[in-house]
């Protein structure tokens, strides 16, 4: 924090003159870029479609009201599939992510090369969206729930693995040192020194990921990977908006319940 001397007074301020100028210039350039981009987007927009949008939207909503309540009966099975895709996918992802995270964390990895391989697995899994995993897996395995579970699982490895290994790296090293000093084996140091410290975040992150996966598993169905998304895709294709609204309502309620469950579980853990 620079101090400016004005006579006998010492003025303490956040930035000195150069820094203030640079900051002002930064904002100026930022604003110019935003306006420029705005211009390009406006040029490329078909404004007659936009003008028409509220009318189109109200038509679509009107066709969706009231939801087709009778359709609900055919939704139970796909909904159950969706929940299974999310839950089994999360379990699969977490089961692979836990050992991978221990190999990737600086303080538990057996060797730097192993660490880089584990990091590669995590980054590789994270860089591909579950919808794209699903697209690929449907080609390989054929459409169905299995492709959905694997797609969700593969995406979850990266997400949970990254948060797990960060949690492992942040633990207090003193208890680990103390456990090692008793003559404990490497596995015992992991189970007594590390595991109690990282277990809360492993459970918390897993439940959080399960909650995200409930939402994602409704989408993987769009490409044929099982679950309620298949019904959504079919209903949109034949323009049954009352069925679409019914599906969206069911998805909304499911996500709402899963968020509530995940929030209460995490509160219990802390």
């Amino acid at each position: 924090m620079p101090v400016l001397e004005k006579g006998s007074e010492k003025v303490w301020q956040k930035r000195d003159r150069t820094q203030a100028l640079l900051s002002w210039l930064g904002w100026l350039v930022g604003a110019a870029v935003v306006l420029f981009c705005w211009q390009i987007i406006a040029d490329n927009t078909n404004w007659s479609f936009v003008a028409d949008a509220p009318e189109q939207a109200s038509h679509m909503i009107a066709r969706g009201i009231p939801p087709n309540w009778g359709y609900l009966n055919t939704l139970w099975q796909p909904l159950w599939d969706t929940l299974n895709i999310a839950t089994l996918g999360t379990l699969l992802g977490v089961a692979v992510a836990i050992p991978t995270a221990f190999l990737a964390a600086r303080n538990t990895t057996p060797h730097p090369i192993v660490r880089y391989i584990a990091l590669l697995v995590i980054v590789g899994s994270r860089s591909v969206n579950s919808l794209i995993w699903a697209l690929l897996l449907v080609v390989v395995l054929g459409p169905g729930v299995l492709a959905g579970i694997l797609a969700i699982g593969l995406r979850s490895i990266g997400f949970t693995g990254k948060l797990f290994y960060e949690a492992i790296e942040e633990i207090d090293p003193n208890p680990v040192e103390a456990v090692a000093a008793t003559g404990a084996s490497a596995a015992q140091v992991l189970s007594y020194g590390f595991w109690p410290q990282v277990m809360p975040s492993i459970f918390g992150v897993s439940v959080y990921r399960w909650d995200i996966n409930i939402r994602e598993s409704t989408v993987v169905g769009l490409v044929g990977a099982g679950g309620i998304g298949i019904q959504l895709q079919a209903s949109i294709n034949i323009l049954r908006w009352s069925q679409v609204s019914m599906i969206l309502l069911v998805v909304f309620l499911t996500v709402f319940v899963s968020e509530w469950i995940s929030a209460s579980v995490r509160r219990l853990l802390i």
Binding site: A95, V96, P99, T100, F102, L103, P110, V114, I117, A118, L120, V121, G124, S125, W133, L136, L150, L154, I157, S185, A186, A187, Q188, L190
Partner: peptide
Amino acid sequence: MGSPNLGLPIVFVSVLLAGFV
């Protein structure tokens, strides 16, 4: 895509087993 993920847990388990003696 899936193949490296299958190898790692096996490596990990064998690392652990070495400590279980």
